[in-house]
Amino acid sequence: MPVLPGAEPFRHEGGEVGVLLCHGFTGSPQSLRPWAGHLAERGLTVSLPLLPGHGTRWEDMQLTGWQDWYAEVDRELRVLSRQCSQVFVFGLSMGGALALRLAAKHGDAISGIAVVNPANKVHGLSAYTLPVTRHLVRTTKGVRNDIAKAGAEEIGYDRVPLHAAHSVRNFFRTVDSELPQVTQPLLLLHSPQDHVVPAADSARILSRVSSTDVTEILLEQSYHVATLDHDAERIFDESHAFIGRLAPSVGKKGSTTGG
C-alpha cells in the first residue's frame, strides 16, 4: 500500500550526535517532520521512521501491534548508535511511550529523552471492554487533528482499529511497569489543554521514572499535537538546548552543516 503524501519517513546524515524521533499512534512522521527538520538544519543526524501499519490506511494497522512498532524504533536506535557517539530519543504521544521504553531497555546507550504529551494509559470505560469489543467491532472514531492552530493539519487515520487499540493498551501497561528503569535526563513537555492524552499521564510518568535530571515545561498555547501547534518552535528550541547541554560534541565533525 502506498504511503500517504507527507507521511514518508525522514533521514538526515549529520554530525556525531544523533536523534531518533518516534511518532504517535495512528499518526505518521508528518507530525514530527518540522521538529526533525529543525534538528537536521543544526547539523544533527536525524532518524524519523514510519511505524508499521501507519501512514497508509487503517486496515494495514489492524494487522500490526505494539511489538511491531517498538521493533522498528529499536532497530533505528541500533543503527544510530553504530554511527553516532551520542544518541537522543524524542517522541510524541505514543511515541513518547516508545521513547521511554527504549530508555528503560538501552540504558547508557541513550544520552537523554524528550517527550511531548506522552501517553501512559488508554482512558475511558471503553478501554476495559477492548478485550471483548475488538472481536465484535472493527474500528472506532480516530483521534487526529487535536491542534489549536488554525490551518494546521495532521496526517493520520480517521478510524482506529480496535485490535490495535487493545495492543496499545497492553503496551502502555508494559511501559508503565518499566518506568523505574528510566534513568536518563528527561525533558517532558505537555499541554494543559490536551483532548487526547490527559495531564495525569505526564504526572504519572514523572512520578515513576528514576531520572534525577528532569525538566517539565507546559505548552499553554497548544493542544495534543503540539509539534504542529503554536508552541512548536518552543519545543524545537528547548529540545535542541537540551541536547546542547548534554552533548559537548554538538558542532564537531561536520555537525554544523545544514541539511
Rank of each mutant, 00 (worst) to 15 (best):
L100T: 05
F90I: 05
I113W: 05
S28Q: 06
Q67Y: 11
F25Q: 04
A40W: 04
R57W: 13
M61E: 08
D74M: 06
Q62G: 00
V122G: 03
Q184P: 02
A199L: 15
S93C: 09
S239T: 14
F172C: 06
F172G: 07
V89F: 06
L48S: 00
L188R: 00
A247T: 09
T129V: 14
A97S: 15
A103I: 03
P118K: 09
A232N: 03
G43W: 08
Y128A: 14
G142D: 07
V46G: 05
G156D: 02
G258N: 12
V197H: 06
N170S: 14
C22R: 01
G259A: 12
A232V: 04
I217H: 08
A150M: 12
H123S: 10
G24A: 13
H23T: 13
I113S: 07
R101L: 15
D229E: 08
L51P: 05
H230V: 10
R75L: 13
D213A: 05
Q30V: 05
N170L: 13
V175Y: 08
R101G: 00
Q62S: 10
D213Y: 07
H106K: 06
S111W: 00
L187F: 02
Y157H: 11
G37F: 03
H163V: 11
G244V: 06
L63N: 13
L219A: 11
V116R: 02
V209H: 03
M94Q: 11
G96C: 09
A232Y: 05
D74F: 00
L100F: 10
A199I: 14
L48M: 09
L92T: 08
F90A: 02
D158N: 12
A114G: 14
E76V: 14
V214Y: 01
V3L: 07
V46K: 08
V175L: 07
Q62T: 01
G107D: 10
L206E: 12
M61K: 00
E8N: 08
H230N: 15
K141H: 09
V3R: 03
G156L: 09
I110A: 01
N145D: 15
G91A: 10
L77R: 01
F25W: 14
Q184R: 11
L100P: 01
L188C: 08
E233Q: 14
P52C: 11
P34V: 10
E16D: 12
S207Q: 13
A119S: 13
K141N: 04
M61C: 01
W35Y: 15
L186N: 01
I110L: 05
L98M: 09
V89K: 02
S31Y: 03
Q181A: 14
V132E: 08
S239Q: 02
R144Y: 05
D229R: 04
L32C: 07
P52A: 07
G53R: 09
I243D: 04
D108A: 09
P198K: 07
V46D: 04
S177A: 15
